[in-house]
């Protein structure tokens, strides 16, 4: 069956597909940096294609970004652990798309993302699908090397997390976000978040300008402090596993670790600026050290405790990270705090 849409609509739908799939970087750049025409409303045929693209594309994206992993995680409460892939563990959860998804995509398409202007604020309760779309747009902006556009998605906490300190910081109500499906997205997107944080960490370690480094590091500190506090309060520190995944990418071999501190800071900069940069650089190593210290909980869970299964699953995931690797990060934190 052939469906007919207007030329501008077909270009828009191709852009949406690239965002959902993570299309070629040069194409994403061309789409996002330009001001592309689109009628104020797309026709019913194009809207039908858009809806089907979002439904299928977002499910695929969730699977590809980490949801495919078979894991044991608490569902509902810490004592109820379920084994399976993301959709096995949460069979009753639906990806809901409200008008916000459409607004984000049209806004990203029709406005050049070289300007740092935020797009419309999300509704009080965006659907899970909306949140995923905001995340995928943020990912596209970073892949296309258009960080100025990150201001547009800064309202969505998941986009903030993906940006790993490189987006303008917005106050996040982490408990409310976790309560409205954010926990499911953290489970499903862990791999992708981990890769992004690893890339941000490599950027920090190679950067020479102290104030730029301090800005990103301090944003990371604020972001992680809020998130980890909220997760600890809900007894769901397992949702921060993306940081451990990032740690595995940054320190591939604990026996031969890279230097986890910025060594080439501009020598002519003030000591104050360099120390500020070093302290801010510890945002990631401190967070990993915090998660390492929190493992005493699962280790001391007895076989007759209700949370035993979830604790064992967390210990198995920890084993992939390892105490040796944790020691590397702990030592780095101590050195970064030292003068």
């Amino acid at each position: 069956m052939t469906l007919r849409v207007a030329r501008s609509e077909s270009h828009f739908l191709l852009f949406v597909r690239n965002v959902l799939r993570g299309g070629p970087q040069d194409q994403l750049f061309t789409h996002l940096a330009g001001k592309n025409p689109l009628y104020p409303r797309i026709g019913p045929t194009a809207m039908g294609i858009l809806q089907r693209s979002l439904a299928r594309g977002c499910v695929l994206a969730l699977a590809r970004h980490g949801g495919w992993r078979r894991e044991t995680r608490p569902v509902g409460d810490p004592e109820h652990a379920v084994d399976g892939r993301l959709w096995d563990r949460h069979p009753d959860v639906h990806l809901t798309f409200r008008s916000w998804s459409y607004q984000i995509l049209v806004w990203s398409w029709t406005r050049p993302q070289t300007d740092a202007a935020p797009f419309p604020r999300p509704p009080t309760r965006p659907g899970l699908g909306d949140r995923l779309v905001a995340f995928l747009v943020a990912r596209a902006l970073i892949e296309a090397r258009l960080p100025q556009g990150l201001a547009a998605v800064a309202h969505e906490p998941l986009a903030q997390l993906y940006a790993a300190g490189r987006a303008p910081l917005v106050d996040v109500d982490w408990p409310a976000w976790l309560d409205t499906g954010g926990d499911i997205l953290l489970e499903g997107l862990g791999e992708s978040l981990g890769r992004s944080w690893a890339e941000a960490e490599r950027w920090k370690l190679g950067h020479t300008e102290p104030l730029a480094l301090a800005e990103v590091g301090e944003a990371q500190q604020a972001l992680l402090r809020g998130l980890l506090q909220a997760l600890e309060h809900r007894d769901r520190l397992d949702l921060a596993d993306f940081l451990l995944h990032a740690g595995q990418l940054v320190v591939a071999d604990p026996a031969a670790p890279p230097v986890l501190e910025p060594v080439d800071l501009r020598a002519s900069s003030s000591l104050r600026d360099r120390m500020r940069a070093r302290a801010a650089c510890a945002a990631f190593t401190d967070a990993v050290t915090f998660l390492a210290d929190a493992m005493h909980g699962p280790r001391s869970t007895r076989f007759f405790d209700d949370t035993y299964d979830a604790a064992q699953a967390r210990l198995r995931r920890w084993e992939r990270f390892g105490d040796d690797r944790a020691r590397v990060f702990r030592d780095a934190s101590a050195r970064l705090a030292d003068i």
């Binding site: 003030s270 000591l271 104050r272 120390m275 705090a337 030292d338 003068i339």
Partner: peptide, 13 residues
């Protein structure tokens, strides 16, 4: 003609 005042420092524990 200007009087300049510069400083630098750090804090630790």
């Amino acid at each position: 003609a200007r009087h300049v005042h510069v400083d630098d420092g750090l804090q630790t524990k």
